[in-house]
Write a protein that binds this DNA or RNA. Structure first.
Lengths: 335, 335
DNA sequence: TTGTAGGCGTTATCAA
DNA sequence: TTGATAACGCCTACAA
């Protein structure tokens, strides 16, 4: 209704000057008697600092930009929840942008965030190229990169140990007697996909199992891709006795394919999926899966960014490599 | 590195006044020759409007606040994706806040958004109380409420026809010969849950089927709740021949319970779930489900808000009630 | 068509 | 401890 109250109004009502009110707000020294008067006036006027004006003056917006490929994947939305929560508790709000896994949109949105004068950025990049980071670093905005290692660029990074996540999963299959093991990986130009594929190859070599290239499928980290690649794997001769799928959406797709073919897990095919414990329980039988430390990823990212935002650049650039968990259920059979 | 360029810099470089540059930017009339000069200067300086300063002057932040219970549910994150996309294309950025299904946090966050001077708010409220809307309406900030009808308050509203969604699902079961039909609903104080429950009761009455209160379960819209209530339903005597679960997370929980009890769908129990087509396909056999028009909800909400933001209040308060779809798969047996 | 000047709400410097 | 005042970058009468 009425315009929001300003410092001026508070000053008028309390009979003090604008400068004094400002000090009161920002923790300067103010006579106790006056503190009371000011507090009273602020209460009656329901005064709040105008953060826009504040931002203009201080060059700080108390806002962090979060840039992710899409909100549709539980992996991303879960991380964001955590980050948002921590930042908010520290007085920062967040602008979440998705770029639909499109490099051009990604660039546009980075520009957008820079225009919005965010104080910091959390980025889950599409690919490994660092060009897009130029714009940001030119403005001296701290960036935390999650889930990917960007070459040739100094910035704090939080990833999971994808290689060993994959290594351990496949090793589990090997230990249970499997040799003919299929893997469905993500896009070849994506860091996490490369690492997960490396893990597969390394453990196979460590156990001196011959690698059949036909059992290594690259796809798009999407439902349909998982479905299609699973179908292809099932057509191999001899058919693999076990399959490892390296992200959540493709795991869904693969399971659907398996169901359609009326193949039973684990009797006819052993299976290890990725992410999302709830889903793993819904499937029959419950799936063994690799679980990423989503909460931890979010928490560490938020904390390191807050540190940079405070101007503390010790240990820059920081690099965190978090361990995954392996959840053993009933989708793997000993052979 | 260097500070970002300001209008002043552009003015200096082009030899024109600040006012002229401002006109150029905001579409005022400027001599063609000068337009070229200004464009050139802007390009060389890489000048961008400082939206903070602009906001201070215009009292507009070009920002919309989105307040949701949690990001963990695909129903919410999907809607947000759509809204964010449309708003962005119209020059608005979004601040997404979650309140963890806690009324107090919800209030705090509303205050937070108001402090951030958002131009508008999209709200998915926790309950039906309208008190929280006071703060917003006092500031004349347009609000669009999604997924709930707030009594005693004028604001644009977008909901789905939950009652008939439920009616149709249960009717499908009845048509297939079922009479003893269990339903797992959400919290009794939540609008969508009430409506879905009403739909059940109405269709049962329409078909003159006696209602057994023991077959109506209220829970919390969460995975564990769905699991627990399903277990309870399975202990009823005689056991229901069909069950309808009224949101996604509870559907997951219910399916897990059914799997654990080694009950087979649809031979021993017919089943209809809610939301998320992908999941429905993963389960074996694929589940028949009620699908909400997520994209449409997002699109309509964004459009109506944009309209209000432009100052167009025709038809206020608007009320949209969207229809759901029923996806028939293989989880219902004729008896 | 262009320029001058005042003000948006805040912070920060410097005197008092 | 307080207060007057000049910024911050932009917009907008109003005058030229």
């Amino acid at each position: 209704m009425a315009n929001p109250a300003t410092i001026k109004d508070v000053a008028k009502m309390s009979g003090l000057s604008i400068a004094t009110i400002s000090k009161y707000i920002n923790g300067g020294s103010v006579r106790d008697k006056n503190r009371a008067i000011i507090a009273d006036a602020i209460g009656r006027l329901d005064y709040r600092v105008n953060e826009i004006a504040q931002g203009l003056k201080t060059n700080k917006t108390k806002t962090v930009g979060i840039l992710i490929p899409t909100l549709d994947r539980i992996f991303y939305s879960a991380i964001i929840s955590v980050i948002e929560d921590i930042l908010l508790k520290n007085g920062y709000s967040t602008i979440i942008c998705t770029y639909m896994e499109d490099e051009n949109i990604e660039k546009t949105k980075i520009q957008f965030l820079v225009n919005k004068m965010v104080d910091g950025i959390v980025l889950m990049p599409f690919d490994k190229s660092s060009a897009k980071l130029l714009e940001i670093s030119r403005k001296n905005i701290p960036v935390v990169v999650i889930d990917q290692v960007i070459s040739d660029s100094d910035c704090d990074t939080v990833v999971v140990d994808n290689l060993n996540a994959s290594y351990n999963a496949v090793e589990h299959l090997i230990t249970e007697g499997h040799k003919r093991i299929g893997i469905i990986c993500g896009p070849e130009n994506v860091y996490t996909a490369q690492e997960r594929q490396k893990g597969y190859i390394r453990v196979m070599e460590d156990y001196s199992i011959k690698i059949d290239k036909m059992l290594i499928k690259n796809s798009d980290y999407k439902f349909e891709g998982g479905y299609k690649m699973m179908m292809e794997l099932l057509e191999q001769k001899p058919v693999p006795t076990a399959v490892f799928v390296t992200n959540y959406e493709m795991t869904l797709g693969a399971v659907v394919a398996i169901n359609e073919k009326n193949i039973s897990i684990p009797e006819q095919l052993s299976f290890i999926g990725f992410d999302n414990m709830q889903m793993a329980e819904v499937v029959k039988p419950p799936l063994s899966i690799v679980v990423q430390p989503v909460r931890q990823i979010g928490a560490i990212s938020a904390e390191i960014l807050l540190k940079r935002l405070k101007g503390d650049f010790t240990g820059f650039p920081a690099f965190f490599r978090l361990k995954t968990d392996m959840l053993i259920r009933k989708s793997v059979k000993k052979i």
